[in-house]
Nucleic acid binder design. Structure first.
Length: 920
RNA sequence: GGGUGGUUAGCUCAGAUGGUUAGAGCACCUGCUUUACACGCAGGGGGUCGCAGGUUCGAGUCCUGCACCGCCCACCA
């Protein structure tokens, strides 16, 4: 093994090998429930960012874990055509070239987008591969592929035929920059500082009296068709039902009473512009007011706006205000902060206006057969579980207030709406296959609807459209419904909810069992990462610098599901250091194995059918039956961590699993077990620690593989070459070890918990720590050997067995062991040693440090320790003697406390005795 | 306005079903060319778990209220 681990080179080589061996490809077969994740399809022109890296790290870990447990897994990657986003990228290119999409026309434009997609569309998945993800690339799907496109059209036609898709004139949000309608979700509301303009509208029959309205958008007054006040507002008694004259326009409009009006706001009078405000639209409908569009789809005033026709909307605002002022009807202008909708894609202020659009009838969650109702029940009835659970409420609340979904977009890039209008009879032909004639009058004069569908309409079908639906395919049969949908909580409504709605509508089944939501990546100060802020980090740079495994560790360790993550470079350093640690520990273990090359013939002692293996290593793959206390201890610890990690993975607590594993590998295995093993190896102690050393390392690698796939594979392959080429399965027969760690079984706990070994080794560790601590505090150089006397006090066997370890790790020489208790004291053995006395109940360790510490100082230290002990003892005594506690606490808790009490009493007594001996 | 999350060591965060003396990484201090690793080893300091009540033998964990910070939703003209 090379001395240093070169992550980047190793990772590239290993990934290519995995691809060559075709390990990621899933084969449908019956018999076993598969584990399926459909990857959230990134935008085709998008670039890989840390959010993707997090998402893929989590999904890959889930998939690799299941694959190793022997479950058939499918992780299906894909790409989204991303209507507005992609169209805008290409439009910008055209602008740079001095032309526009309108100049070159629809056909040429779409061709141009395809060219762009073909050139740059694969980049994000090329980048993804660098992250080591084990997705089934052969099944990759693009939303505009024939299959998914067919699913889109099938869904549209079917929903239309069920009456769940309809075309209607409604007030919708329009982005004048993108030149398309937006759904409610695609509008971001931000508070902005604006003005509230108070305008006087004179009464028609009493021009000296006015109704003053307040508005933030005075230009819309050109389209006013009424004024509304609250029905009970006394200020407007006698005015309701009369008419006012709209300034500038001179139009006579009514004053109506409407419950929706808040008398507290402004003057209590609302100017009603039904075409340009959702509230006004509803008021207008209730009172049958006209709804003229005064602002056009291009953002300029329309002909209806009279002399302002053609003026851009914000310019119109300035000029209207000026004119109102000069007419003397501008009462006052106040500063006013209010929320304004912006286009999610380009941040342009959206314009609500009335237009003809296609909608999906979502219905209400209270109607059992509506789309909303079914999507609602899928979650309330537990068919779909959301992790973390708190997002369940968020999801349900959203459905409770849902409105119909505007799905038509005035774009050219996307799935064209499969509807044809007849020029002669006006009939709408909605069809799977492109028709030549009107289905009603057979006229050939038909035109297809120019609009395309909302991108989320096709992504909403993703779990079934990628598996071949509506075809009756093996993949669909076997892999649908999928298992886990993993994504960021920010697209819960956009995507997750839509998949649930459309999945159930199309297939009758919820598209997945579990929704696992991860949090957002933020920068070190908690700000959202974005290009405009300039606080982004390129995952590929990080991977080159620290390695993929380190990046994955940094993204997923110690985080809880659904929680945002403040990402800083020192997380990456920690990941890199961890990888380095594992590399070096493995290098040590493997170098030791190299010394005991397998020798033909002598393996039969351990297993009759293992002819080429070194007897001590035969068991390394599957199980060892440790005899030595240290081996029993590390195996016991291993089985505990194995159980914990499995449990955490089952419950999606990936951060927990990583933390637990990290702690075991670093502390138990590296800091203690390897150090203890070194001593046994050096001294030729029996039995050799090598089988256990190898066994635990091999299990560690497998346990860690889902999280850090590359370094574990690299080491595992080397380790494998040092271990026998046959593996004894738990059933006793020989099997070939798998080709790759990713095909090896995920470890399960063998239940080799050994409380005695754990206790005894813990005692040894405490004794070693106590001595080290003393050395550090008294500044005794590491090189200086110290003599010590240990009173074993009932632990003589363990202490004698571990004497070498204690000697080496605490640099004691010689180490004298006495039985302790009465025998010791009476024989005077201990009395000869004056210095520091350490109580590690039940052990007493005496260090002869006369001249280094004086008796006063030592007495002082011991009294402080005793005081601390007394304090704890008092608390525990109180607790244990409380009848309520004994009665109500769990038995194991009571047992623990009693053991603790006994230990504290032992310690207290020993401290007393030592102080007595000291004569203080 | 309605939801919802957070408030734990200097910083970033973990802390299933209430139960040892509250943990990790980083930072900090002191030693260390210990033959796997200085991307390391050993030792150490540092927290009234936001505030106030309550339930309980026992509360970081459960309940109520409050205070900040954040996020989501909503038709604040």
């Amino acid at each position: 093994m090379p001395r240093a681990y070169n992550a980047a080179d190793v990772e590239r080589r290993i990934y290519q090998n995995w691809l060559d061996k075709d390990y990621f490809h899933a084969v449908p077969h019956t018999g076993q429930q598969p584990y399926v994740i459909i990857m959230p399809p990134p935008n085709v022109t998008g670039e890989l960012h840390l959010g993707h890296a997090l998402e893929k790290a989590l999904e890959d870990a889930l998939i690799r874990y299941r694959r190793m447990t022997g479950v058939p897994t499918l992780w299906l990657p894909g790409t989204d055509h991303a209507g507005i986003a992609t169209q805008w990228v290409v439009e910008r290119q055209l602008i740079d070239e001095g032309t526009s999409r309108h100049d070159i026309g629809r056909e040429a434009f779409v061709r141009r987008v395809w060219e762009h997609v073909e050139k740059s569309g694969g980049i994000i998945h090329e980048q993804s591969r660098r992250l080591g993800i084990s997705a089934d690339w052969e099944r990759h799907k693009f939303t505009l592929d024939d299959g998914p496109s067919n699913a889109v059209r099938t869904t549209f036609v079917s929903l239309y035929e069920k009456g769940l898709i309809y075309r209607h004139e409604r007030i919708i949000n329009r982005c004048v920059r993108c030149a398309t309608a937006l759904s409610d979700l695609e509008v971001d509301y931000d508070d902005v500082d604006g003005q509230l303009y108070h305008i006087r509208y004179p009464l028609e029959d009493e021009p000296d009296r006015c109704v003053t309205v307040a508005t933030t958008r005075p230009e819309t007054m050109l389209g006013d068709t009424g004024v509304a006040v609250h029905p009970d507002d006394p200020r407007y008694d006698g005015i309701r039902g009369r008419n006012v004259v709209l300034p500038i326009m001179g139009r006579v409009i009514p004053v109506v009473g409407d419950e929706a009006i808040d008398p507290e706001f402004g003057t209590g009078a609302l100017k009603v512009t039904p075409a340009h405000d959702p509230v006004d639209f509803e008021v207008g409908q209730r009172h049958r007011l006209d709804a003229p569009n005064v602002i056009g789809e291009d953002g300029a005033m329309t002909r209806v706006a009279g002399k302002y026709a053609g003026v851009e909307r914000f310019e119109a605002r300035r000029r209207v205000v000026e004119e109102l002022d000069s007419l003397g009807v501008l009462d006052k202008v106040e500063a006013h902060r209010h929320s304004v909708g912006h286009c999610q894609r380009c941040a342009t202020v959206v314009e609500p206006l009335i237009s003809m659009q296609w909608f999906v009838n979502i219905g209400s969650h209270e109607q059992p057969d509506s789309i909303a109702g079914k999507a609602y029940r899928a979650v309330t009835e537990g068919d779909i579980r959301i992790v973390p659970e708190r997002f369940t409420r968020v999801y349900l609340n959203w459905l409770e207030n849902i409105r119909d979904w505007c799905i038509s977009r005035q774009l050219w890039w996307g799935h064209r709406i499969p509807v044809w209008y007849c020029d002669s009879c006006g009939h709408m032909t909605v069809a799977m296959a492109d028709p030549d004639t009107c289905e009603a009058c057979r006229s050939t004069g038909i035109r297809q609807d120019p609009d395309v569908l909302d991108t989320w309409f096709s992504s909403g079908l993703w779990p079934h459209s990628t598996l071949g639906w509506p075809g009756d395919t093996d993949d669909f049969d076997y892999f649908y419904p999928t298992t886990v949908l993993e994504t960021g909580y920010d697209i819960l409504f956009f995507w997750v909810a839509r998949m649930i709605m459309l999945g159930i509508e199309n297939t009758g089944k919820p598209p997945f069992n579990t929704v696992y939501l991860h949090g957002l990546i933020r920068d070190g100060s908690g700000a959202k990462m974005s290009k405009t802020r300039g606080n982004t980090m390129d995952p590929l740079d990080l991977v080159e610098k620290y390695g993929t495994d380190a990046l994955r560790f940094a993204l997923t360790t110690g985080t809880a599901p659904g929680n945002d993550l403040r990402f800083t470079e020192n997380r990456l350093e920690a990941g890199r250091n961890y990888a380095n640690k594992i590399w070096n520990a493995s290098r040590f273990v493997i170098s030791q194995l190299e010394g005991v090359q397998s020798s033909p013939g002598n393996a039969s002692a351990t297993h009759p059918d293992a002819p080429t293996a070194h007897p001590e290593l035969v068991e390394g793959w599957s199980d060892v039956t440790p005899e030595h206390r240290e081996d029993r201890w590390i195996i016991s610890r291993l089985d505990r961590v194995t159980a914990d990690v499995n449990r955490s993975l089952e419950s999606f607590e990936l951060g927990d699993a990583q933390q637990r594993l990290h702690e075991f590998i670093w502390n138990d295995y590296c800091d203690w077990y390897i150090e203890m093993a070194k001593i046994r190896l050096r001294n030729g102690g029996e039995p050799s620690p090598l089988p256990t050393l190898a066994h635990v390392l091999e299990r560690i690698l497998r346990l860690l593989h889902p999280f850090m796939p590359f370094i574990t594979e690299e080491i595992w392959q080397t380790l494998k070459s040092e271990l026998p080429q046959e593996n004894i399965s738990s059933h006793g027969e020989l099997v070939e070890p798998p080709e790759s760690i990713m095909l090896a079984p995920y470890p399960v706990s063998n239940g080799r918990i050994d409380p005695a070994a754990e206790e005894e080794i813990a005692l040894v560790q405490q004794a070693v720590r106590a001595v080290r601590n003393t050395r550090a505090q008294l500044r005794i150089p590491a090189a200086q050997r110290l003599e010590a006397l240990v009173e074993a006090n009932g632990q003589r066997a363990a202490i004698e067995d571990e004497a070498d370890v204690i000697r080496a790790l605490s640099r004691i020489e010689p180490l004298n062991i006495v039985s302790g208790d009465d025998a010791t004291r009476h024989s005077g053995e201990s009395g000869s040693l004056r210095g520091v006395t350490l109580v590690v109940s039940p052990l007493v360790v005496r260090l002869p440090l006369e001249g280094v510490v004086d008796l006063d100082a030592e007495g002082e230290r011991l009294r402080a320790e005793l005081a601390d002990c007394d304090k704890n003892l008092e608390r525990v005594e109180k607790l244990v003697s409380n009848p309520n506690f004994r009665e109500k606490a769990r038995p194991d808790v009571v047992e623990n406390e009693e053991a603790r009490l006994a230990e504290l009493r032992d310690r207290q007594q020993r401290l007393h005795e030592i102080l007595q001996q000291l004569g203080r």
